[in-house]
Amino acid sequence: MPIIVNLDVMLARRKMSMTELSEQVGLTMANLSILKNGHAKAVRFSTLERICEVLECQPGDILEFREEE
């Protein structure tokens, strides 16, 4: 999929675990895994907003477009 979700990078920078992120954002671990592993088909703006709020970052820090070869 062309859109890559770089949650791992931001989590490492903020020294936060996936569990902590899921609790603060209000997403289940399953949904967070779907997002992290690139299986998500869509992300709600409300979810993106909460993630950026918790990780104190911009959407561009988490989402990256990589053209398929």
């Binding site: 998500a40 088909k41 869509a42 979810t47």
Partner: peptide
């Protein structure tokens, strides 16, 4: 349904 289930 699949798209809805994979919408985070």
């Amino acid at each position: 349904r699949e798209e809805n289930e994979l919408t985070v």
